Computed example of a mutant assay.
Amino acid sequence: MSPDRKPNLAAARDVAVTFGVAACGAVLAWSVAFPAPWLVGAVMATSAASLANLVQPLPNRLRDVIFVLLGASMGSAVTPDTIRGVALWPGSMAALGIAVSAMVAASYLILRRGFGWDRVTAFYASPPGALSATLAMAATTSADMSKVAVVQVFRVFVLVAVAPVAIAVSGAHAPPLMTAPQAGLGAMAAILGSAGAGALLFKACKLPGGLMVGAFGASAALHASGVLAARLPDWLTLPTFVALGAIVGTRFAGLTPRAILALMRASLASFAATAGLGIAFAVGVGWSLGLPAGQVFVAFAPGGLEAMMLTAYLLGLDPAYVGAHHVARFIALSFAVPIVARLIGAGVTRAPESAPERDR
């Protein structure tokens, strides 16, 4: 066997193990009628396996394909009625800006004053819903990355694992948006072709979540215009739901159970504050605009773009509404975080001599 084939085989084995664990969790969740089982079950199983160092994150190229397929699939939920609801979004977007500001402030104060964290670490652990960008920015500062990572990853995990259950129990949702007929080969080619083009365009423009949002936008345009009224077949979409669960679950890679337990109180307190504010704003915005409170909460929830859009889709909520709000938040936080960090003195860059420590 040539030497270059060994790494490929090892990578393929890692993918198979990770996806196998995620699939087992998804099937188990489905067998007990768990809400959004293909996502939630996969997240819970891979999170546990990741903490035990049994699984590895999926390769970037495979993740890219998954995001395109997810966007193409969720675009089928957009209808002409969805477009008519866009008129209600400006007020909701304004409320989102207030809600995010309140979430950051509340989490920061809790971590800073309640747990004695330093200013830089408390600040970068607080922005909700822009995990990758926040971690990247925090890595250039003197923030304690283990604390930042645990609080941020814990927040996403709880939302993806618990939010679907809570919304399902509350009844603030609709039947899953998978009632359209499954597409034939021609319709599949049209959906996937347009989704791929949209994904590449958005990625080239360097927009947040570009691959999935671009694919979603292109697929949504086909369905909202009435050109197509079909969804991708289950044999293609269900594995992508499971794969997204694996992507979220393996966020715990590199974190030890001991580190997480040591920071559990701080993580819970930060999450309770941000989630509580999200619920309060969701109820208020939903009541004032006549929108489902569950839908508004998923849009305002401090979770990841892809996971929250899929959660909305699986619970019969509007993924376009949810996606638009998460993209707006991502863009706003990407610009606002470094500015606010400088204003409050949390933008101190890491000293050059400490650089090797980041790799330990």
Score class of each variant (00 low, 15 high):
Asp4Phe: 09
Leu9Met: 10
Ala10His: 05
Asp14Phe: 03
Ala16Ile: 14
Val17Leu: 12
Phe19Asn: 08
Cys24Tyr: 11
Leu28Cys: 06
Ala33Asp: 13
Phe34His: 15
Ala36Ser: 14
Gly41Lys: 06
Gly41His: 01
Val43Met: 10
Ala45His: 08
Ser47Tyr: 06
Pro57His: 07
Pro59Arg: 10
Arg61Leu: 10
Leu62Tyr: 04
Asp64Val: 09
Phe67Ile: 13
Ser73Trp: 11
Ala77Val: 06
Asp81Val: 14
Thr82Asn: 04
Arg84His: 15
Leu96Ser: 14
Gly97Tyr: 10
Val100Leu: 12
Tyr108Lys: 11
Leu111Pro: 00
Leu111Ser: 10
Arg113Gly: 10
Gly114His: 13
Gly114Leu: 07
Arg119Cys: 01
Thr121Leu: 00
Ser126Asn: 06
Pro127Lys: 03
Gly129Gln: 02
Leu131Ser: 00
Ser132Pro: 11
Leu135Tyr: 03
Leu135His: 08
Met137Asn: 00
Ala138Ile: 01
Val151Ala: 08
Val153Gly: 07
Phe157Lys: 15
Ala166Ser: 07
Ile167Arg: 02
Ala168Arg: 13
Ala174Gly: 08
Leu177His: 12
Thr179Met: 13
Pro181Val: 05
Gly184Pro: 10
Gly196Pro: 01
Leu200Lys: 07
Ala204Arg: 15
Leu207Asn: 02
Gly210Cys: 05
Leu211His: 03
Ser219Lys: 07
Ala224Asn: 13
Val227Pro: 06
Val227Leu: 06
Ala229Thr: 05
Ala230Asp: 05
Thr237Ile: 03
Ala243Pro: 13
Ala246Cys: 03
Ala246Thr: 02
Val248Ser: 08
Ala253Tyr: 12
Thr256Tyr: 04
Thr256Ala: 04
Pro257Ser: 14
Ala262Ile: 04
Met264Lys: 09
Arg265Lys: 07
Leu268Met: 13
Leu277Met: 13
Gly278Arg: 01
Gly290Ala: 08
Phe300Leu: 15
Gly303Ser: 03
Leu305Ser: 12
Ala307Thr: 13
Met308Gly: 14
Thr311Ile: 15
Asp318Cys: 12
Pro319Thr: 03
Tyr321Ala: 12
Gly323Gln: 10
Gly323Cys: 14
Val327Pro: 14
Phe330Thr: 04
Ile331Ser: 04
Leu333Gln: 02
Ile339Tyr: 14
Ile339Ala: 15
Ala341Thr: 01
Arg342Cys: 06
Ile344Asn: 08
Gly347Phe: 00
